[in-house]
Design a protein around this nucleic acid. Structure first.
Lengths: 204, 204
DNA sequence: CCTACCGATCGGTAGG
DNA sequence: CCTACCGATCGGTAGG
């Protein structure tokens, strides 16, 4: 899912990346549909057609933006957490990096994926599918670490990993939701408490 | 916060109500900004200007739609739950009606407030304020019942009601999020389990 | 509640 | 990567 295309020049790649980076930031605030090519290009001191030349259509721009966001979340949340030993430790590391990413205002409009999944959940098409696919991978990652924790005897053998993954994800999204609406960073601490309690309850 | 205006004729009120009802449904799918006056009026076999005559501006239409949604949630979730005795019973009743409301596909695009709060959380203005205000009332309602439960000795005396209200809300929103993306009604059962476990953990 | 209309902006294309 | 342009749609107004 890397967004770099090998055949392009370094110069073109750089422009393409700055477009997508800006698009990701704007989309966290206004969504992928609310983001207009006109405003995006103006913000980058480009012409609309110059920008579109990199992607062909708005839908392709949206898809590339989702992929870049996926890469960024991977680099800053998943990869760092993979350094921890698998199981409960890695699971808490994943949640910790996830919350920290948004607590530090990395994106101006909060969680990119919460924003765009809410926006596209009632639309048909490739963009919705890509978002859904990316979210599935995230949930599967949580479930996988719960599975490892289970096999290692860290949590109860009869734990419903699907259930706990749902809850952890809900807590994280709940924190992002509340933070965007109330601008109170305290909700991230609430989320950490909730995650701790949830995992404590299934500890063996 | 009732949306009826006393001075208007019955006929005008009826038209106004059918506009708002349709607007609420469309907004659950496309948001309050994505909802355009053109498409809304076409769907109601009206002219754009005929529709706008009821509200003056799109922002006023959006505000009235938020208020209608608030009334509807009140009628179908809060009022029914108020028949239960206060405390834990009423709290579970509130969550139950809330989940059932969305499990039964009452709105075509899922939870109205989840959709519009995600959409407006990065915009300034009156609409965002109204949504925020409505959400605050909902969270306060959850907290109030937790407080009653605490006073009645149903839950532990040192319970952080703000924390638990945050968690219950996160679980409900998490279910709506997952349902819209995966179209799997099973998430509502997951949410019920999570709520049950959360309340069980603080039981005295 | 309507028709007729306004300027602004939308995504996208032609041609370079 | 640009200028110049396309038809469609946006929110909103005038006047009835």
């Amino acid at each position: 899912m890397k967004t770099m295309i090998p055949g392009k020049t370094t110069r073109g790649q750089h422009t393409r990346m700055s477009i997508l980076s800006k698009a990701m930031q704007l989309a966290s605030k206004e969504g992928l549909e609310g983001l207009s090519i006109g405003r995006l290009s103006t913000g980058l001191n480009m012409s609309k057609s110059g920008l579109l030349a990199h992607f062909g259509s708005k839908e392709d721009l949206q898809l590339a933006t989702v992929d870049l966001a996926c890469d960024r979340y991977n680099d800053q949340i998943v990869q760092p957490a993979l350094k921890s030993t698998k199981g409960i430790t890695r699971l808490m590391s994943l949640c910790g990096f996830w919350l920290k990413y948004h607590e530090q205002d990395t994106l101006p409009g909060g969680c990119f994926f919460l924003a765009v999944s809410s926006e596209f959940d009632s639309r048909a098409g490739r963009v919705r599918k890509r978002i859904k696919f990316t979210m599935s991978r995230w949930l599967r990652l949580l479930k996988r670490e719960l599975y490892h924790a289970q096999k290692a005897g860290e949590i109860q053998r009869d734990t419903d990993t699907e259930q706990i993954a749902f809850e952890l994800n809900a807590i994280g999204h709940g924190a992002n939701w509340a933070y965007q609406l109330y601008e109170d960073r305290g909700v991230f601490q609430k989320a950490r408490h909730a995650i701790e309690r949830t995992l404590q309850a299934i500890r063996s």
